[in-house]
Design a protein around this nucleic acid. Sequence first.
DNA 1: CAGGGATGTCGAAGCGCTTCGACTATCCAG
DNA 2: CTGGATAGTCGAAGCGCTTCGACATCCCTG
Lengths: 336, 336
Amino acid sequence: MVTIADVARHAGVSPSTVSYVLSGKRSISEQTRLRVEQSIAVLGYHPHAGARSLASSRANVIALVLPLRTDMHVPILMQFATSVVTGAREHDHDVLLLTNDEGPDGLRRVARSALVDAVIVMDIELNDSRVPVLRELGLPAVLIGFPADPAGLTCVDLDFVAAAARCVDHLADLGHREIAFIGPPSAVFARGTGFAQRTTSGFESAVARRGLRAAVRPCDPSHSAVRDTIKRLFDDHPGLTGLVVHNEAAVAPLLETLRGLGRHVPQNVSVIALCPEDLAAHVSPRLTCVPIPAEEIGRRAVELVMGKLDGAEGVPPATLVAPHLLPGESTAAPPA
Amino acid sequence: MVTIADVARHAGVSPSTVSYVLSGKRSISEQTRLRVEQSIAVLGYHPHAGARSLASSRANVIALVLPLRTDMHVPILMQFATSVVTGAREHDHDVLLLTNDEGPDGLRRVARSALVDAVIVMDIELNDSRVPVLRELGLPAVLIGFPADPAGLTCVDLDFVAAAARCVDHLADLGHREIAFIGPPSAVFARGTGFAQRTTSGFESAVARRGLRAAVRPCDPSHSAVRDTIKRLFDDHPGLTGLVVHNEAAVAPLLETLRGLGRHVPQNVSVIALCPEDLAAHVSPRLTCVPIPAEEIGRRAVELVMGKLDGAEGVPPATLVAPHLLPGESTAAPPA
DNA sequence: CAGGGATGTCGAAGCGCTTCGACTATCCAG
DNA sequence: CTGGATAGTCGAAGCGCTTCGACATCCCTG
């Protein structure tokens, strides 16, 4: 193994000088710096991560806690992971992958053993058992999602309120006057995944603002449940011309049901979904949607975490990523 | 931070004794061991990962290199990642997530800096640029997939030859006499992803063994390409009653094409796919398939890597995971 | 031309752990 | 009763790095 002493010898300087060249924490003459850098290149030197971590109490590693066993849409998870790894590397950090299997203990372990400097936790629930642990550990953390009490924590997520409003506005702008919201199964509300409430309230206030008539329905993703929900919806609201769907699993059954009922999309009814982009793209007709900007959220999470590690004071406790509408072929003006 | 010295003081022993309790590398009296273990629990001690790595030159971390930017089926990747993390934790190791963005340099970096003790590399191509680096580094490695020259390396993968044969046998057992193989686009062959060749040869030798008439066609995944391929196939082979598909992207277009041609599955033609289980489950009719056993491959990869880390001599250079057939609704006896 | 602030470099102390050799006590065979 | 294993514990030496204080230079100011 090539050590800093080898580099120092090769360059004719002391080890501390090499260290300062590497860290830039003290001024080094141009001449010396070049010589050291050349020796580093020639010898192929890489600082020993453990030694560095021990001496500096900075491991340059962050943990990413993924919910690997949930019903969450997998490609989205992967996008998060990718953007976090990429972002971390840009800040000269690596990423340790943790699953939820270990639960809070896993967090304790990696924190206490100084394996990681900070942690990014995904799939936060309203009453998440990991949140108290994060508070207890005092480990710099960024949550993707919002717990019930985010006090003292740093959270980032899509602005679901604005996202739902964006859907409503899109339909309203096209001329729709009566629309409905097809939400997640009521079980999801109960479980306490915060975004369910947030989209609903975003939908409702936007609807009020635009003066639309509207209905809100939670919906199980099973084919029959979707069929029932839709049928009843049109029975109750014959004038309905637009649907906002926030329920990944229900998208396909929903479209099939509409087809079965002879309601053409978008000629008779417009459909806009709050769902992953790839899902919207893989159905027919291609859905107009407000995608989950996984890549941006991941990047922001890394930036926030790096801000905290640098001791920056200005790290905002809550970051809401603005939604963007991705036009598809499933929305149009309502039938005259 | 709680250090080993704190534990030693609390238990009334020397730090080295605590270390030996932890590692079990020297015999310790029952009495002392219990006292130390209790102190560890009381103080909530976790050894400093960096210090341990420095002193023992074992980081207890393995790297997992994922191809985060390919056309690979994402849920499969996630299954790999999950099983690798879970498996590694069972051996008291953590997993560092690396993407292919950094390429061979990333491997060099984590190896030279002793950030990881070993590496699991996914999505190996026949002529993979990372393979020479692995040889050069002498880092214990397990490849998922086989390069052109696997000499001196440890590889694990699904036994694609046997998998293709399994498909042929299934159709032959049902009574089919004339079948075809719809393979990956010819570009994939050219790119040099080893499994393409292996399934083809597995298909061909099984067909010969069973005395079937057969055709082999590579196929681009576009709708039109699939349509053309299928049409020509049935023109050339009017007696065709079974299809073996090894092309994830072509599955949906293929089924749609058959529907369009009025060939019912499985009444007129049987279809069996070599594809991820979830893909087979999400089309209609549900496909009979030989799934990629991602979970098992990941687990085996971890076991192999741990074997190498323990210096075991008996680590087999090539591990072929046996295929299993998952019955669906897309295969039946051929029409009389 | 003395005094003082930059500027650039070095030496040494330690970060928390593992591990080797040394030491004591105990036990059994000769 | 002695000599030699064996079991159980300790002390100390590092592992490779960062960082603090010290020390030269050099240049500028009064």
